[in-house]
Design a protein around this nucleic acid. Sequence first.
DNA 1: TGATAAACGGACCGCGCGGTCAACTTGTAG
DNA 2: CTACAAGTTGACCGCGCGGTCCGTTTATCA
Lengths: 208, 208
Amino acid sequence: MTASIRPLRADAARNRASLLAAAEAEFAERGPDASVADIARRAGVGKGTVFRHFPTKDDLLAAVVLDRIDGLAELARRLGGASDAGAALLEFLDAAASRQQQLDLSFLRESGALNEQLAEARGRLFVEITALVERAQAAGAVRHDITGTDVILLMCAPSHVVSFVPQASPELWRRYLAIIFDGLGPNGARPLPQPPPDPVSGELHHPR
Amino acid sequence: MTASIRPLRADAARNRASLLAAAEAEFAERGPDASVADIARRAGVGKGTVFRHFPTKDDLLAAVVLDRIDGLAELARRLGGASDAGAALLEFLDAAASRQQQLDLSFLRESGALNEQLAEARGRLFVEITALVERAQAAGAVRHDITGTDVILLMCAPSHVVSFVPQASPELWRRYLAIIFDGLGPNGARPLPQPPPDPVSGELHHPR
DNA sequence: TGATAAACGGACCGCGCGGTCAACTTGTAG
DNA sequence: CTACAAGTTGACCGCGCGGTCCGTTTATCA
């Protein structure tokens, strides 16, 4: 389904690849408002070429983001086999925050054509994270009133928080991840004041 | 300094007030990218009038945001006298998150003309928050490796996290505030992996 | 009330954006 | 080698934005 009927021509495949790389870099540096023209220039192609490969800017963003989600889901899957379930969850959050440092949270944005693929990938990620969380709970490393959705939402926080401080150490996010992870631990005790939101079945959307 | 040499004409004062109200509402609903034209329409004035009162869109945003900061600083000051220092800090975070629900984090943005006022206000807020934190630490409610800057940064997180879930309960942010506050508590134990960032003396800036 | 400066309003400007298109180039199958 | 489909390109379009400007209205005060 992903592979089209006919294989791409050689130059087209090359352009598509460098386009994706350029888009990833540009979105990382400038955020989701990076301009298509800049991305095209960075990739060394004309603007028209961008729209030949991705009908819409959102589709391009979605493609970049799909990679990230798949990467995270794969990582979560591998960590599912770790012996220390608490450490596995922390390691996952660590990797997630570290990558979001570069790409912000934009992968939650909904997007036209690739929407189904994105939704599927998000679904897979959700499943893996939920498994990770449940194992961590069984191991006594995470409080029992936490859900996979909570973790998905909170894993975005450290990099966002850090994005406000101008010349932050590139590792500063670890400080806030540690605080939040402590908050997920069983030592906090007091019951949470609100029920968790519905799982990702309902679409997540992009914040302002 | 704030009051100009000559007092405002009656209609001008009225317009300025409704402009501020409209701007607050519009920024709350649409975020910092709300258009000046919409704000003007909402206030029932012409677009030119907006720019007469605020030379730049950023100045308008800064004015709105200055109110918020002053309000928060005042609240923090009052809470400084509370008997239960831990509860006081939590109450402050509660109020801050609740208001940010409406205005996002935009008050950290730097801005041209009002920059000094904003910086001053932010300084006052920082002082009050730091006092709150230190009292909470002395009371044993907050771990000792936390700074006022940490709290300033983290107080933005709950509303941001929640902004991703589409039809969130309006109180959902309390859930994540509770988790984060638990992370600030002394029960977590493990030392933080990174030193805190410099205090607000260095300018904070607006995230993408 | 009438003179005057202050305030108002909306047409207007330039800019950069996402997206389109038709002329042109190039990889490739036979 | 050739013919043709696939791919590329950048000028171009419409739009909405922040900001300007000047003819008009209006609060104020002698």
